[in-house]
């Protein structure tokens, strides 16, 4: 099957702004499906609200466009009902880390086999560009007209601390690396998190002297550095840099639906 078979081509052209990184993530995700040969009928693809949320319209599988911040809670129900199926969630920084922060840390704590991709474009894009938990400090947004004072979440550290068993980060500026990372995370048994640094030049860039996608993508390139290259740098050279790569992989921790199967067996109910 070609990666295009995983796209509802009759729904194209897509809804995102020209130059938006969300399309890059969509392609990386469907290429990972192709590489793994997953059958569409065995695949649930669930999103929340925001620009990332619209991705479920375009993925040709069992899809669900849910409420703001809660796709992981729906996915938990789907996965527990049918543990043998693949369950993928794509979310955004506002969706997963602000309104959905609670669902995020608890899905990670359980280590339920859901594959989460967070498109972190550093802003609430769809609603017109308001500050999010990952908007850099000093940046101007619609709701921080004098500059942002809010400290940020480090998604990688948060995911590891909460108990995710596969945690990685990439940027839309490195699409091939992104595909490989997503594919690897999809192969992991347990709760996996891939954070993707993405661009919103329309609703964040324009307010911060990055009017077009090229300028913003260049900025992302200079802000990010692959982990293996960073290891050779001095600490002062890495100040303010965002590292890319795999940060955590634990293959030993038991997955949640497997643990529940043991409960069913102990209760004498597994047929």
């Amino acid at each position: 099957m070609s990666y295009l078979d995983y796209v509802r081509q009759f729904k194209l052209p897509h809804y995102w702004c020209p130059g938006c990184g969300t399309g890059v993530v969509l392609q990386a995700v469907v290429r990972a499906f192709e590489a793994l040969g997953w059958k569409q009928e065995d695949l649930a693809f669930i999103t929340g609200i925001g620009c990332s949320g619209r991705m479920s319209t375009y993925v040709n599988a069992n899809t669900m466009h849910t409420t703001h911040g809660r796709p992981l809670a729906f996915a938990t129900g789907v996965k527990l009902a049918r543990p043998e199926k693949h369950v993928v969630v794509v979310s955004g920084d506002g969706d997963a880390l602000a309104i959905g922060g609670n669902h995020f840390i608890h899905a990670a704590r359980r280590n339920i086999d859901i594959k989460l991709v967070i498109i972190n474009n550093l802003v609430y894009g769809m609603t017109g560009g308001q500050v999010s938990p990952t908007t850099p400090q000093k940046f101007r947004t619609q709701t921080t007209p004098y500059g942002n004072i809010d400290p940020n979440f480090d998604v990688v550290k948060l995911a590891i601390a909460a108990g995710a068993t596969f945690v990685g980060r990439e940027a839309v500026t490195r699409p091939r690396n992104l595909e490989k990372l997503i594919e690897k995370s999809f192969q992991h048994k347990g709760f996996s998190v891939v954070e993707v640094i993405s661009n919103c030049h329309i609703n964040l860039g324009r307010k911060n002297k990055m009017k077009d996608q090229i300028t913003m993508l260049r900025w992302i390139s200079t802000k990010t550095i692959p982990k293996n290259l960073a290891e050779k740098k001095k600490p002062e050279e890495l100040e303010g840099k965002i590292l890319l790569g795999i940060f955590h992989e634990d293959k030993n921790r038991k997955e949640y639906t497997e643990l529940y199967r043991e409960i069913q067996e102990r209760a004498g109910g597994n047929k």
């Binding site: 409420t67 809660r70 809670a73 729906f74 996915a75 938990t76 609670n102 669902h103 597994n270």
Partner: peptide
């Protein structure tokens, strides 16, 4: 679990309502 079914205590009421919808769709 005795009946081969699944119980989960979720992190909040919002999530538990979401989880039952997910399981119903499944």
């Amino acid at each position: 679990p005795k009946a081969g079914g699944t119980f989960i205590q979720m992190e909040d009421e919002i999530a538990s309502m979401a989880a039952v919808i997910g399981a119903s769709i499944a």
